[in-house]
């Protein structure tokens, strides 16, 4: 054994970390402070890197568009090519503008309660479904705040660091949302599966539920506000054993393509 001291130190740290994993408050408190200090360095780095990657992506998109335009309009004059390129850029601006207008209109209906944030990253492991936004405790974000888009529910804030916050998306395996079927007297628990589809659980086979029904939050879980649209039922299986139906739900949001989100201040 060449490095007994290093091994002893590592084992001690591992033991402390084990207690952190068991959610022992004393250890978690200290560990959170340690993580916060690392996040002060890493948070701005993520925002910067996001801007660089966003810029690179825009340049690549522009290049791809330019190549396509050249292929399609090989015989046209340079002026026309420039105009078409400009047109494409305008279309992109229009889409962005529409998206931002939607967010703005939503914010105007809910004044002083919403904070718009930009998605800067995602969970480093694909074991969990989490997105990272560019607003944190510097914008008074706190745990359990609801995160939405004009289309529907995204998830909840699980950690707010100084420069960024982590959002647990509703398709994470640790996520559960109390929902009811819009227009019907049926309630259930919507659980994440770690995949694109969600599972609506504890709905009895005799309960009213049809494919195409929309789900909204019930507010009974005390985390999510009442009435937020969540997703749509895509399959219902009542043939299996047991008293509950097997129901698949597709969320309204495509969590892989989110660019901006809104955090509801409590």
């Amino acid at each position: 054994m060449k490095n007994p001291l290093i091994i002893i130190i590592t084992v001690i740290i591992l033991t402390i970390t084990f207690f952190v994993s068991t959610d022992t408050p004393f250890f978690v408190k200290g560990y959170t402070k340690l993580k916060d200090s690392v996040s002060i360095i890493a948070g701005p780095g993520l925002i910067l890197m996001n801007r660089i990657t966003q810029g690179t992506r825009d340049t690549i998109d522009l290049y791809v568009n330019l190549t396509n335009v050249k292929k399609e309009n090989a015989t046209l004059k340079k002026k026309l090519e420039a105009l078409q390129l400009e047109n494409q850029r305008l279309a992109e601006f229009e889409r962005e503008s529409q998206r931002l207008k939607d967010i703005l209109s939503f914010s105007q209906h809910n004044p002083n309660t919403l904070i718009a944030a930009h998605v800067t990253g995602e969970d480093i492991k694909n074991w969990f479904k989490c997105i990272i936004i560019d607003k944190g405790s510097n914008y008074a974000l706190r745990e359990k705040m609801n995160v939405i888009t004009p289309r529907g529910l995204v998830g909840q804030v699980i950690e707010a660091h100084r420069w960024h916050a982590k959002i647990m998306v509703i398709n994470d395996t640790n996520s559960s949302v109390d929902v009811f079927i819009d227009g019907r007297n049926t309630r259930g628990i919507l659980e994440g599966t770690g995949q694109a589809k969600l599972k609506l659980k504890y709905v009895r086979k005799t309960d009213e539920a049809e494919i195409g029904d929309k789900l909204v939050t019930s507010g009974k879980d005390t985390i999510y506000q009442k009435g937020l649209p969540v997703g749509i039922i895509t399959t219902i299986t009542r043939g299996q054993a047991g008293i509950f139906a097997d129901i698949d739900v597709v969320p309204f949001n495509d969590f892989k393509k989110l660019e901006e989100v809104l955090v509801i201040k409590k």
């Binding site: 970390t17 952190v20 994993s21 250890f27 690392v38 890493a42 990253g121 969970d123 989490c130 699980i158």
Partner: peptide, 12 residues
């Protein structure tokens, strides 16, 4: 810091 993993798990 960049994951929603439970406290200490990735570190461990």
């Amino acid at each position: 810091v960049f994951s929603s993993a439970p406290h200490g798990s990735i570190f461990f």
